[in-house]
Design a protein around this nucleic acid. Sequence first.
DNA 1: ATTATCTATAGATCTATAGATAATGC
DNA 2: ATTATCTATAGATCTATAGATAATGC
Lengths: 193, 193
Amino acid sequence: MGHSQKEKDRSHERIIQEAAAKVREAGLDGVAVAELMQTVGLTHGGFYRHFESRDELVAQAVERALKDGGSAVLAVTHSEAPAAEILGRLIDAYLSEAHRDNLGTSCAVSALVSDVVRGGDRVRAPYTDQVGSYIELLAKLIAPTRNKDRRAKGIAALSSLVGALSLARAVNDPALSREILKASASELKRQLL
Amino acid sequence: MGHSQKEKDRSHERIIQEAAAKVREAGLDGVAVAELMQTVGLTHGGFYRHFESRDELVAQAVERALKDGGSAVLAVTHSEAPAAEILGRLIDAYLSEAHRDNLGTSCAVSALVSDVVRGGDRVRAPYTDQVGSYIELLAKLIAPTRNKDRRAKGIAALSSLVGALSLARAVNDPALSREILKASASELKRQLL
DNA sequence: ATTATCTATAGATCTATAGATAATGC
DNA sequence: ATTATCTATAGATCTATAGATAATGC
């Protein structure tokens, strides 16, 4: 009860981090203030000294979730390997069963698609930015040899990645889910590498 | 107040139909009993003579929404034209601005992805079935000439369609949204036709 | 003295139910 | 008489606030 400013900052950070995971698992409506604070080890009353409102927290949690995913992808990218090899690793990581199964730490562009469609500009603006940087990143990694329109290929690749991961998660049948990941990954690599 | 059985059947049908639209627009959590009944022109009290619970309605609404989309796609398919032409029309229709902008009557496989991931088996089972039939439909339309693995190509095509439509909706920027639709459609057609 | 967190609760929203009302249909 | 719908409300859940409590930090 009643601690230092440093401790408040740590509490604040833990609330956002937990909310960034929860929002990917349960959606924008799935974050409940009392439950969130309990998970962090606090009571719900203190919440409003950290955030002006639930909406404000959700907006910040979405931004954080988008950045989390972005830096995870960039981590794969930072390498001296040739672009084609990096692109292959990116596709494999994005469409892996591990990525599919760990919603809370996963790419928010996939985890939050449907939610963002129904969300306000406060969540759509950072989402749009993140989509833009993924497109640029993919376009840079795609070889310009065959067809010169790298940007179009980058867009199509992002659509495939997001669609395949989302479908693999939604589907009830483990065999079909795995098949969706495998087929989409191998088709993407066949087209781009 | 208090009418015939025929009228009850019509009320029942209108409730499901309205819920099937609302669920695509607002998600599984976005359907509120009182609001729904008001839209249909009834009061909320009568709802429980039509459905055992809200969950029961949502499950039925999702099934209906999936079938709606399925029959819309089949309508494009029923034609004497060659498979390649039908496939082209399907891609153009799915990735059209009209489809993007009319959530309530759109394909539920795209509109409900994130929601279904968080939903119970009651919604995931019919969703999985619908994904299965789309894959089969696409596989049949894909020419077996170049590469014999039509099923893998069907899966990859569905992923692209769902991902592109979802991203085009989520994004804040109209120009980027159009670009996503155009680029994904032309890449898909370049690969498959 | 200040402030981070806690306890308690008001107020709004939503699902579900009970009993009343006004039609239908044998 | 039966029943489809309506009115009224109980009960649960959730956001937000007010005031109390127990630490920090000058």
